[in-house]
Design a binder for these strands. Structure first.
Lengths: 120, 120
DNA sequence: TAAATATATGAATAAATGTTCATATATAAG
DNA sequence: CTTATATATGAACATTTATTCATATATTTA
């Protein structure tokens, strides 16, 4: 018999079953961490703005900075985060480095987010 | 003629065109802010874990706390954020309050995130 | 080789965020 | 009406994070 402190809502059976289901379906600790890490990247309006620009064209750092009216340094720092999470890729052309979207998950994720906030 | 400081990458024409496109397609400031706000909610592994539990069942606060091995207070604080962003809804039943997913965007967004991190 | 341009990055600072602790609210039971 | 149970919440603290500033790296041009 369980101790009182370990019980909850007086619903012991449901609790046991829930534990089993969660144990079966909950992703590994590292995957949960990586998922949260990925969504953190989308959780900043500067990075969102960068992504919206890259939806339209391949753009160099200095154009991004000008279009978004931010310093080159701030943009570079954010591009590093986007790069590390494989949301964008880069390509050198002379002195400039051009950035573009890495894949289409970015578009899907942002599209779903927009749908959600539009539905109130 | 533009001043030198305002130029960039010596590619003036492309820059002008980019400005126009971005001006046409970039969402309003408030939408960008709301989007970032929404993704911030997904950017915490505790909230992600809560959502994974709610993928499987409607669960009361105290069961969530036990299953995730966290304090009731911590869970309640996070549920408030999930509620405020309409990712979960709640229903009272006696002394307990049961939480469930608000809609299916949550599943889609998380599924896309998982796909992204799995593709390296 | 030296100067100019484009980008990256480390350190510092200010702001945002998650958890804990104490406590408030709400419902049910005695 | 008093006590117990379930949940919510404000304040405090520690951690994370975005921007700025100064500077480093890399490429092109003179």
């Amino acid at each position: 018999m369980q101790k009182k402190e370990e019980m909850c809502c007086e619903a012991l059976e449901i609790h046991e079953e829930l534990l089993k289901i969660v144990d079966d379906t909950m992703p590994e600790e590292t995957e949960l961490y990586d998922l949260a890490e990925l969504f953190k990247v989308f959780g900043d309006s500067t990075r969102i703005r960068i992504l919206f620009v890259l939806f339209e064209a391949e753009v160099c750092v200095c154009d991004l900075a000008q279009v978004l009216n931010m310093t080159q340094s701030a943009i570079s720092h954010q591009l590093k985060i986007l790069r590390q999470n494989r949301l964008v890729k880069s390509r050198r052309e002379g002195k400039s480095i051009f950035y573009s979207l890495a894949d289409d998950h970015v578009r899907t994720i942002i599209a779903q987010g927009r749908e959600h906030i539009r539905e109130d």
